[in-house]
Design a binder for these strands. Structure first.
Lengths: 157, 157
DNA sequence: CAAATTAGACAACTTGGTTGTCTAATACGT
DNA sequence: ACGTATTAGACAACCAAGTTGTCTAATTTG
């Protein structure tokens, strides 16, 4: 009973934040100074094959309107392009650009770097145990794209 | 090398989220259905002695304007009251109400409950090891109040 | 006592989320 | 085959939390 409960939850937030901060400081050094955490998540959700706005919303766990805004942002930043969908003139295919692929590669490498620092600091044994424990606690499989909204929106119904 | 780096970071987010979600579902059952994560953080920052808006901003790590908005929200929700500061007619003392104290007590109990579920699930040994590892990874001591903004704002400087 | 600082309010803007409404295109059922 | 549903996406209005900038009143300082 050394740690009060709230502190454990805060440690999770702190570690997450520490990881994301370290990643973005690295990305900034590599030519992506304006990158925001959500960029990576959304591009990952779009996938190498691309997807429509509705699909993006479903994959991120947000409304299609929110997905549309995200897509606009990504397009403005040069990370995606809109293509027509052959056979359905309503739909629009969001497709990652070259720049997006490079960004994702840099991002993956950055994550690897950050996590490796943790592994070296803790030692492989403790690190693996921690990851395993986290995997049992975090209810996986839920989309995480709505992280920002989740913090601010009131716990719905 | 079982887990890719990004997955570990996502696990941290997922566990944090899982904890906060469980807490708020519990709080909702206990008569605080509109409670948002930031309420607890801000009330904790205000402290039992109360503080001014500027101090709140410093403690949360946000601008005083943001702190003022937060204070307004807390006041509207009945969690704080404004009192004049004797000896400085510019300043306003934000003081927690009875309702805030009750809410904080329920929140602390809820956190304890949530974390205890984790401890029982993992076993005390694995749980303690995880917490210890997290404490070494999370850079502690930094104010946490700006979590929502931190996700969305572009990495400054 | 004048000048600088401080506390807080107010306004405008950004980013992310939500609902609700709307049009155009596609799918379906008779 | 045609009229009716459903679907994809755009647009608008709003909420929540953040930012910077400007302003006034009060206090501190030289």
């Amino acid at each position: 009973m050394s740690e009060p409960g709230w502190r454990v939850v805060l440690l999770l937030a702190g570690a997450f934040r520490q990881g994301v901060d370290a990643l973005h400081s690295e990305l900034a050094d590599q030519g992506y100074p304006g990158a925001r955490p959500l960029h990576g998540f959304a591009l990952q959700a779009i996938g190498p094959e691309g997807c429509t706005i509705n699909q993006l919303g479903q994959r991120l766990g947000v409304s299609k309107q929110a997905a549309a805004k995200t897509a606009t942002g990504l397009e403005d930043a040069g990370y995606i392009a809109r293509e027509p969908v052959p056979g359905d003139r309503r739909a629009v295919l969001l497709r990652r650009t070259e720049r997006a692929e490079e960004f994702l590669a840099a991002s993956a490498a950055g994550f690897e770097h950050v996590v490796d620092r943790w592994r070296r600091h803790l030692g492989a044994g403790r690190f693996d145990a921690m990851v395993e424990a986290l995997a049992e606690i975090a209810d996986d499989g839920r989309p995480i794209g709505d992280l920002p909204g989740w913090l601010t929106q009131r716990p719905s119904t």
